[in-house]
Design a protein around this nucleic acid. Sequence first.
DNA 1: TGAAAGCAGCTGTGATCACAAAAGGGCATG
DNA 2: CATGCCCTTTTGTGATCACAGCTGCTTTCA
Lengths: 216, 216
Amino acid sequence: MNYPPRPVEATPLAHDRVYRHLRSRIMHGDLPPGQSLTLRGIGREYEVSMTPAREAVRRLVAEGALTMSSSGRITTPELSNERIEELAALRALIEVELASRALPRAHMALIDRLQAINGTIAEAVTHRDAVRYIRTNLEFHRTLYLRAQAPAMLAMAETVWLQMGPTMRALYGRLRRTEPPQFHRLIIAALKAGDEPGLRLAVRSDVTQGLRMLAS
Amino acid sequence: MNYPPRPVEATPLAHDRVYRHLRSRIMHGDLPPGQSLTLRGIGREYEVSMTPAREAVRRLVAEGALTMSSSGRITTPELSNERIEELAALRALIEVELASRALPRAHMALIDRLQAINGTIAEAVTHRDAVRYIRTNLEFHRTLYLRAQAPAMLAMAETVWLQMGPTMRALYGRLRRTEPPQFHRLIIAALKAGDEPGLRLAVRSDVTQGLRMLAS
DNA sequence: TGAAAGCAGCTGTGATCACAAAAGGGCATG
DNA sequence: CATGCCCTTTTGTGATCACAGCTGCTTTCA
């Protein structure tokens, strides 16, 4: 479990560096579903031997970010619709709780930052940049949830994001959209008003909207 | 992420065998919080080299079942009270949802099995057997949640159990109790009656009761 | 033209080793 | 008697290697 906010960690350890970089790429949709990876390939890319590559992969497999076939082949996961629905339900459960816990601590400075991030998301949308869209969208959520002061819950939410990463890329790539996320504005409005039921509904709507895309 | 129900898996792979056995010991409270482990020690115990031991440990660390210090020393986690509260809240969130999804599929055969398991729990309580108590208690919950047909959610719940394993042992070991869990009977009653609100309340009460022990 | 057989390359697994850093214990000193 | 220092042992890390199994392509035969 990765408990963010991580300490400063002056660890130039090879396996950790590989792990972090791969994790970021997967979470943000850099890799499509079903993409295959090899230990030697990863080692070559990061200029390390197989050992740290193996440890990084093992860790990512444990978090559901990568899949290993019975013969040990490594690929990014291809999620079934049932699995996607389940992960979205988990997002709704956990993130609604995180938002609710963040609400009493959300001051104006946080709301300003959220609005700024929302602006960046709008840019990504107009540029049809899926990776940047996913990255800034998650940054929006993470920024809010960090205020909840619940690292174990945030870690769980991030694990779900990680599992959905490659699929999100495929989904958003297929999407024709020109407007920034409407529910983010509802989230910000509810935060300003201190409206907890409204916040819960807005977060739930936002994290499950991908499902509607999928169904259509 | 470990998606139970696992396939038959005829994998005698060393690292997997070590992982599974260690995982079971940790989840069921075989190890106290703060217990230190070494790769060479694990390798000796399971008659393997350091490599599979390292992979198993890496996987368990990723799931929060073990902690690594900055220098790489391996111990079972010692949870702060805030972390325990958070994990209990996660259990409540996820397990209430799992129970709710299992309710429409819970037939009499399942309820009979749950009652049988409850009998075993009562035995463990009278014998003051903490490990057996934890094991059968989790078996009760897992048996119910398997009916929810939501492997990703169940995996999340198990990850939380895993993180709480050593602490649960310490808590229940400190507990003076002679009666079987009252909330399990409420869960069974709600299942029989098809009473969803009652089931949600009973599950929430059951998974957060450890907190009241902690506070007292 | 088609499928099946065989082969060469590649992939993950696990063992072993060298190495640096940390831990623990024993000793000497204040 | 307590405290700080040093040395020995133990620890995790990463590289390398042998090996078995799988993949995928080429070749061959019907």
